[in-house]
Deep mutational scan, measured.
Amino acid sequence: MSAKKSPEELKGIFEKYAAKEGDPNQLSKEELKLLLQTEFPSLLKGPSTLDELFEELDKNGDGEVSFEEFQVLVKKISQ
C-alpha cells in the first residue's frame, strides 16, 4: 500500500480491520498485526516489532489503537 492515501482512504482501511472483532472504532493487537502484515509488510520485522509498535501507538494504554493513534504511524512512515 502506498503511504500516500487520502484521509478517507486511511479511515476506510482502519475501519475494515477494526471491524473484525470487538470495538469497530479500535484496533486490537491482532487486528493491527493483520493490517500491518497486509498493508505495510515491511514494518513488521518480527514479533517484538509488533509489541514495540503497539505499545508506542497505544498512547492512552487501553490495549487498543484508535484511528487517531493509528494516524501517528501513518505520518511516521510517510515522511
Rank of each mutant, 00 (worst) to 15 (best):
K45S: 13
L36A: 05
S42H: 05
I77A: 03
K76F: 02
F54A: 11
Q26L: 12
T38V: 12
L43Y: 12
S6T: 09
L43K: 11
E9T: 06
L10Q: 05
V65L: 14
G61Y: 06
S66N: 12
L50M: 10
P7T: 15
I77C: 04
T49Y: 11
Q71V: 07
K59V: 15
A19P: 04
Q26V: 05
F14K: 00
L32H: 00
E68A: 10
F54M: 12
K11Q: 08
P7Y: 14
L27A: 04
S48M: 07
E30C: 10
L32P: 00
G61V: 10
E30G: 07
E31Q: 15
K16Y: 05
P47Y: 14
K59F: 15
A3L: 12
A18Y: 01
K59A: 14
G63K: 10
E39K: 01
Q71W: 02
K29W: 06
Q37D: 14
Y17R: 01
E9A: 04
F54W: 14
P24R: 11
D62I: 05
N25K: 07
V72H: 09
F67K: 03
P41N: 07
Q37P: 02
L34M: 13
K29C: 11
S2G: 14
N25M: 05
K16T: 05
K29F: 12
L43W: 09
L34P: 09
K45G: 08
D51P: 13
G63Y: 11
F14N: 00
S6F: 07
Q79Y: 03
E64Q: 15
K4S: 11
F67M: 03
D58R: 06
E30A: 10
F67I: 03
L27D: 00
N25Y: 06
V74F: 14
Q71I: 07
N25H: 12
Q71K: 06
P24W: 02
G12P: 08
E69K: 10
S78K: 05
A19D: 09
S6M: 04
T38W: 02
K76H: 03
G63Q: 06
F54S: 13
L53V: 13
K11A: 03
Q37N: 08
L35M: 13
F40D: 05
F67V: 07
E52Q: 09
L10S: 02
E15M: 14
Q26P: 01
E9Y: 09
K76C: 01
L53H: 13
L27R: 00
G46A: 14
F67Y: 09
Q71Y: 03
A3W: 02
F40A: 02
A18G: 06
K75V: 06
T49R: 07
E15W: 08
P41G: 11
E64L: 07
F40N: 05
A18R: 03
L44T: 13
E56A: 08
G12R: 14
I77V: 03
E9W: 01
G12K: 13
F67T: 02
E52A: 11
K16W: 03
L36P: 00
K75S: 09
F70E: 00
P24E: 07
L44M: 07
E56L: 05
G12W: 05
P47E: 15
A18S: 07
K33S: 08
K75E: 13
Q37H: 08
I13Q: 02
M1H: 00
K59I: 04
S42E: 15
I13H: 01
K76Q: 07
S78E: 15
V65G: 01
L27N: 00
D62F: 04
L73N: 01
E69H: 11
G22V: 01
L35C: 06
K75T: 06
P7V: 07
Q26M: 11
G46K: 11
V65D: 00
L57Q: 12
F40Q: 02
G61L: 07
E52L: 11
Q79P: 15
P47C: 14
S28G: 04
K29V: 13
K20M: 14
P24C: 13
K59C: 12
S48Y: 12
A18D: 00
V65Y: 15
F14V: 00
K20G: 10
L44F: 11
K16Q: 04
S48T: 09
L73D: 00
V72Y: 07
V72Q: 07
L35Y: 01
E56D: 06
K33L: 13
E30V: 15
E15H: 12
